[in-house]
Design a protein around this nucleic acid. Structure first.
Lengths: 151, 151
DNA sequence: AGACCTATCTATAACGA
DNA sequence: TTCGTTATAGATAGGTC
């Protein structure tokens, strides 16, 4: 549709590609509006350029959500169901992580340790001693710094 | 584009409207495919005829879900229902909880304590000492139990 | 409903400023 | 780069079968 015929394959020259994108994007948007008016159609059109810029058109008689619901019903394809499952999975994972950290924290604070065996208690003691050593060293560092600044 | 020019307004004759719908729908689908190939664009196009029939095109390099997520991010418009928002909210909450527990755990183990001030270091020392006392008491309990069972 | 036809209209590729 | 401009390719309205 222009001075020369072009093959339908990726336009290698990036500035031509950009120009063509912009023109054709406007063309498609216009067509979408036209079919909406001419034929009582309901259109949802979302275009992302390679650059990341987005353009969209949703027929004014409807909403994107409405179209997606109808899409879901008509095609049977999952949209946010799958998304929901992913989210639920992540929540499960986070909860487990949370629980085990909470238990570990309580143990370090000396709570809920009745169920631990002797070996576990020894490991816990080690961890606490190591922590205590580090913290006391750091305290001394801070203390020395303060002294030096004062004197 | 044809034997006669037409105004862009609803086509009153229903059979003409249907025919025009079918032709233009094909035209738009073709354009969507073309811009995808020519310009590396990613398109999601869903069309409902007044009759309820659906047609769609999603660029093969992506998925509708992916496009909707990007749409959500780019436009800020909500697409998902309240449930979805709640799930996202819960994930955020869990992640924060997770992060703060992780930090607390590291502190108790004597890691990453450079940023703590003297007061915080003292509180940490207290916590560790309390924990250590509890753990050693429990160790003694277990030890006494073992002795009693042996003798 | 399609599928094909074709005169006409529209979109746009290439170019220029 | 982003406008206009213009020659041409492509889309399609109105038809026929």
């Amino acid at each position: 549709m222009g001075r020369g015929k072009i093959e339908i394959k990726r336009i290698e020259n990036s500035s031509n590609r950009q120009v063509t994108y912009s023109k054709r994007k406007n063309g498609i948007l216009k067509k979408a509006k036209e079919i909406t008016v001419l034929c009582d159609a309901q259109v949802s059109l979302i275009i992302f350029a390679a650059s990341g810029k987005m353009h969209d058109y949703i027929s004014p008689s409807t909403t994107l959500i409405d179209i997606l619901e109808r899409y879901h019903k008509t095609s049977g394809k999952r949209l946010w169901d799958a998304k929901h499952e992913n989210l639920n999975g992540e929540i499960e994972r986070l909860k487990k992580e949370n629980d085990s950290m909470q238990i570990e924290l309580r143990h370090l604070k000396g709570d809920d340790i009745n169920s631990l065996n002797y070996k576990e208690l020894m490991a816990l003691e080690d961890a606490l001693e190591t922590g205590l050593v580090s913290v006391r060293e750091k305290q001394m560092d801070v203390y020395r710094m303060l002294r030096r600044n004062v004197c």
